[in-house]
């Protein structure tokens, strides 16, 4: 469905952030993109959704196709219209607007006549938003704001959703709830999801396929279960190395392979 082919992204004409990254998302799947801070996960998502320009970024090489069509030169608005929607990092709800107005803004690319049905659908998944439909969204809790951010995506009837760290700053219980919702969207709405996460454990359990990024390129990929079993992933991302003495330099050597 989405194919990123060997792209390079440069910020401010000099800083090379993504160095030849390729990945492929199959329709109907949840695909996770993991990596440490600064690996280039968010940049990858922005490259796909056409949001690099406000950050002074540019795709200098490679191409991105969505449903067989090249989108790397398209405007953000056209990309949303073609069925690809990004839920941005940090929720980014419109703080001065009420919940319902936020949702209507989310459905901007759809005709006003579809808003009623779409609102009902969002309220079906998030009953809590229905209770607070008239509330100013800036006053809501982090979890509710995240629900609103996902609800906004639903308003656009997307075929595929890019999610940038939906678990950011939420309590463990809420993280569980959000992931439950993500799985539900995937199963019931048949929405394809590309998920960027720091919470490797949750993401790998939820996804069908995963990619791991370091320093602007993919270093490892495979089905979610398989990645979860991988020794390196267990050690560096899941913190399950067992007891180890600092003398064991073997760890160090293996780690180096990841960082080069």
């Amino acid at each position: 469905m989405l194919r990123i082919n060997n792209i390079e992204v440069v910020y401010n004409d000099v800083i090379l952030v993504i160095k030849g990254l390729s990945l492929h998302v199959q329709g109907g799947q949840i695909v996770a993109l993991l990596g440490s801070n600064g690996a280039g996960k968010s940049t990858t998502l922005k490259a796909v959704s056409g949001l690099l320009r406000p950050d002074n970024g540019e795709i200098t090489d490679g191409d991105i196709t969505f449903m067989g069509e090249r989108i790397d030169r398209k405007d953000a608005a056209d990309i949303v219209k073609s069925g690809l929607f990004q839920v941005m990092e940090g929720r980014r709800v419109f703080k001065d607007l009420t919940v319902e107005e936020n949702l209507i803004a989310g459905g901007f690319t759809r005709k006003s006549s579809c808003h009623g049905a779409n609102l009902e659908r969002v309220y079906h998944y998030f009953p809590r938003l229905k209770e607070r439909r008239r509330q100013i969204s800036g006053y809501m809790s982090g979890g509710e704001q995240q629900m609103l951010a996902i609800g906004r995506a639903l308003m656009a009837n997307p075929k595929m959703v890019l999610m940038d760290e939906p678990s950011l700053g939420l309590s463990p219980l809420l993280v569980k709830e959000i992931f439950h919702i993500i799985r539900m969207l995937n199963e019931e709405e048949k929405t394809t999801i590309l998920l960027v996460e720091q919470n490797a454990n949750m993401a790998l359990s939820a996804c069908h396929y995963g990619y791991i990024m370091e320093n602007g390129r993919v270093v490892l990929d495979g089905p979610g279960k398989q990645l979860k079993e991988n020794d390196d992933v267990r050690e560096f991302y899941l913190g399950m190395a067992g007891h180890k003495s600092f003398r064991e330099v073997k760890h160090y050597r293996r780690r180096k392979r990841w960082l080069s």
């Binding site: 949001l51 949303v80 219209k81 980014r92 419109f94 001065d96 607007l97 107005e101 803004a105 901007f108």
Partner: peptide, 26 residues
């Protein structure tokens, strides 16, 4: 500003430009 889609979009842009852009608002 309260009721129309464009009006709501205008307030959304005033609030957070990049997020509005990600929603396909021109």
């Amino acid at each position: 500003f309260k009721k129309s889609k464009i009006g709501v979009a205008m307030r959304a842009v005033a609030c957070d430009q990049q997020a509005a852009l990600s929603m396909g608002i021109d």
